[in-house]
């Protein structure tokens, strides 16, 4: 399937899903689905760097929060509409990724991983001390009264936007995966030195994939302030984003765009259920345990099983 066809299909599916689900009377569905979609974007974005290129980013929460707080900033400064926040947040997060990548991707991969973790804490402290965006107290972002497309509540709009953004993230990830660059990134993941000596401009490709990955993570966060009408640093920088965006691709499978999607939908749904029926601490424990179990026992994730099954069938 060519990129154009795939993009068209993804858009059509997203629009159809958005339209059909509007009929669901239960408001909780939208709240839960918004969170699952948020994870779809985060996991897909993380996988562009983590799965395709082999570099671990522990700072998903930082880039997510950059997206969210850019929205807050533009809201406070100009009462800018959501669309402005989405574009600006994506760009700012991409720039932050570019900067982090430029500074640390020359070093061994583990230093990038540690630096990404460090970035999350530095930004957290920065935001806590920055009163303009609410500081430690948090900030209110009022949902607009007028809701377009005749939707009953603002959450319906946020959910639909998130659905379209998830489709967009998948289209980007798949396009990168299938391109010449995707092959270059895979070569870097397998053996960076051999890749460089095969003509792959490794540093440039790494920085680019970091930038795209971080930009998409930022995009996921841009709608977040509107989601609860309120945002505070500890929720925007929650470690659960970092853990989930690593766990979901690992559990789904990191070799293709489908893995993070499957992982995010499965794990995201399970978490929504556990959160309601048991408690949120337990649901985090489940994510952690699943992450460790999969990474030790099934390193290729669910898609790894599917591939193995296909190969056996093909023989």
């Amino acid at each position: 399937m060519s990129n154009k066809v795939f993009a068209f299909v993804a858009l059509a599916v997203a629009l159809a899903l958005a339209a059909v689900t509007q009929l669901i009377p239960n408001e909780y569905f939208f709240t839960a689905a918004y969170t699952v979609l948020l994870f779809v974007i985060l996991a897909t974005a993380w996988n562009i760097l983590g799965g395709y290129t082999g570099y671990v980013n522990f700072g998903s929460a930082a880039f997510f929060a950059i997206g969210a707080y850019t929205t807050v900033f533009f809201y406070n400064a100009f009462k800018a509409p959501l669309a402005v926040g989405i574009v600006a947040g994506t760009l700012v997060a991409g720039l932050a990724g570019l900067g982090l990548g430029y500074l640390t991707l020359r070093l061994r991969g583990v230093f990038f991983a540690i630096a990404s973790l460090a970035l999350a804490v530095v930004l957290y402290v920065f935001v806590v001390n920055w009163d303009y965006v609410g500081g430690a107290r948090g900030a209110y972002v009022l949902q607009p009264r007028e809701i377009p497309f005749g939707m009953p509540r603002y959450i319906h709009l946020i959910y639909s936007v998130q659905l379209l953004m998830a489709a967009f993230a998948l289209v980007v990830a798949r396009a990168i995966e299938k391109s010449t660059m995707g092959r270059g990134l895979a070569a870097i993941r397998d053996d960076e030195l051999a890749a460089e000596c095969s003509g792959v401009p490794t540093l440039r490709l790494k920085i680019f994939s970091t930038m795209v990955s971080c930009a998409l993570m930022g995009m996921a966060g841009t709608t977040f302030p509107y989601y609860l009408s309120y945002i505070e640093p500890s929720s925007a920088f929650s470690l659960s984003y970092a853990v989930n965006s690593i766990a979901m691709p690992l559990i789904g499978g990191m070799m293709s765009w489908m893995g993070p999607l499957i992982g995010a939908v499965l794990l995201g749904t399970v978490q929504q259920v556990v959160q309601v029926t048991v408690s949120s601490a337990w649901n985090l424990l489940i994510v952690g345990v699943l992450l460790v179990l999969f990474v030790t026992l099934a390193p290729n994730g669910i898609m790894g099983w599917v591939d193995a099954w296909r190969r056996r069938k093909g023989r």
Binding site: A186, A187, R189, D190, D191, L193, A194, A195, C197, M255
Partner: peptide, 10 residues
């Protein structure tokens, strides 16, 4: 390379 470095996932 002296020690082969294949792209193992390909």
């Amino acid at each position: 390379f002296q020690i082969p470095k294949p792209f193992a996932s390909m």
